[in-house]
Amino acid sequence: MSSTLPESEASLEVVPLRHWGRLTGAVVTLVGVAMLGHTIFSKIPSRTGQVVCHTVNATKSCHAVVEWRFSWNTVGSYLFDPLVMNGLWLTLQITFWAMLIGITLGLVVAMMRLSHNRLMTGISWFYTWFFRGTPVYIQILFWFAISYLYPTLSIGVPFGTLTFLHINSVTLFTPLIAGITALGLNEAAYFSEIARAGLISVDEGQIEAATSIGMTPSQTMRMVILPQAMRVIIPPTGNEVISMLKTTSLVASIGVIELTGAVDEISASNFKTVPLLLVACVWYLLCTTILSVGQFYVERYYARGSLRTQPPTPIQRLRGDLRGLGARLRRTPPAVTR
């Protein structure tokens, strides 16, 4: 049996398939999100049991004072507290220095791992094994307690008695330095694996081509291998920076007043623990958001030459979506552009 077709097939109307399952899922999710938003910004009777009473026309009516469930007003009043601001600045500094140590040392460890020298590969393997295999929290405590093992550090002849320089461990390894050292050395172990993956992802032909035009191994590494390895290295490194930003909160345990340490200290005196934790969360979230945006553009820069056409930025995509939506509302099919 065949249905009859109208004269002009080009004028047939296209009826899009309705995705009912997808629509139901969207509605359920939307309700969930609305509920979540509602409770986060809901008000409850004052936790202190405060009551206000009015007397209108000789009848007294009382009702409980309400406040934000999440104490947003308290959050707001401590958001720019000087102690919090100083803590935030210290958190950013610790993140920076720990990542700098981690990336520099990690790159060295990765190159050692890829070297032809068995001793080098062995040492680098051991390094990663040790620092990745023990909790970073314990490593922080360990560096803080280093003066127990080495009360003084000195530079001199290996295995000899002659020394040139003595430093008291306690004065060198302040809580801040101990924290940065621990986080940096730990990060180096993780970053070395990221760097190694990046370095071995570069096609061997690239190395041969660089060699054939007379580049030295060091030039080949700097100008040909590393720039191409970056494409693979950047995304997980962005992850590591974001992770590091939050892991710095562990150094609060050895008395560094960074962001978490600062809110801890404030709440220890006023017992507004939850609002102050929220203060810290707001700042951590803001920083990680900025880092994510930065990561997107760095990735884009290093992806040049790996794709025929670059994917659009979120802003370009949003503009495209809006244009498509506008066209749909005007009941004209959007222009097909590729």
């Binding site: 690239q206 041969e208 060699t211 054939s212 035009i213 007379g214 040909v224 191409q228």
Partner: peptide, 17 residues
């Protein structure tokens, strides 16, 4: 090596340049 040019089967152009 700099005095000897080489052309490869797989071209091996520097992809990032």
């Amino acid at each position: 090596r700099a005095n000897i040019g080489m052309v490869f089967q797989r071209f091996n152009l520097f992809q990032h340049l």
